[in-house]
């Protein structure tokens, strides 16, 4: 992915969320990552976006993140938000292509909030 495409993808995501919630928001950083465990994906660090917004617009946010996934070339089987525990503040939304070990960690949990800092928007279960 070329830098200018990544810049456009960040701006498109920010613009999409802004239009959705009807007020300003910042995608302060969009990172594509690869981890030594085998996970890969992208993280959009957000400011001005809160849990209430996510709960109300979850379906629409998922669509936006799918578009971003297509742009960065990452599957969107696992999508989650990272929350500052105990608060309304969403630090980031993340799309992660899980490695087998991390998949088993997350797949063994239940519910949207398996940890105080995580809100799962989507976890597609794999066939055994």
């Amino acid at each position: 992915m070329k830098p200018e495409e990544l810049l456009k993808t960040r701006a498109d995501l920010e613009d999409g969320i802004k239009r959705l919630i009807g007020r300003a928001v910042m995608v302060i950083e969009l990172d594509i990552f690869a981890l030594p465990c085998g996970c890969s994906g992208y993280t959009a660090n957000l400011r001005g976006f809160q849990v209430d917004d996510l709960e109300v617009f979850e379906e629409h946010i998922l669509k936006l993140l799918e578009s971003t996934s297509e742009a960065v070339g990452s599957p969107s089987d696992f999508v989650f938000a990272r929350i500052i525990p105990g608060t309304q503040e969403i630090a980031s939304v993340n799309v992660r292509n899980l490695c087998p070990r991390c998949y088993s960690d997350f797949a063994s949990t239940s519910g949207k909030r398996p940890r105080p800092d995580i809100y799962i928007l989507r976890l597609n279960k794999r066939r055994k």
């Binding site: 810049l7 456009k8 701006a11 802004k18 009807g22």
Partner: peptide
């Protein structure tokens, strides 16, 4: 004013009061 598409060739400034309370398109 708020930056729209900051950092891209489409970058522009829009009045802040035009983006508030727009809701879902």
């Amino acid at each position: 004013q708020v930056y729209d598409h900051k950092g891209t060739i489409d970058e522009k400034l829009v009045q802040w009061n035009t983006i508030t309370n727009k809701g879902i398109e």
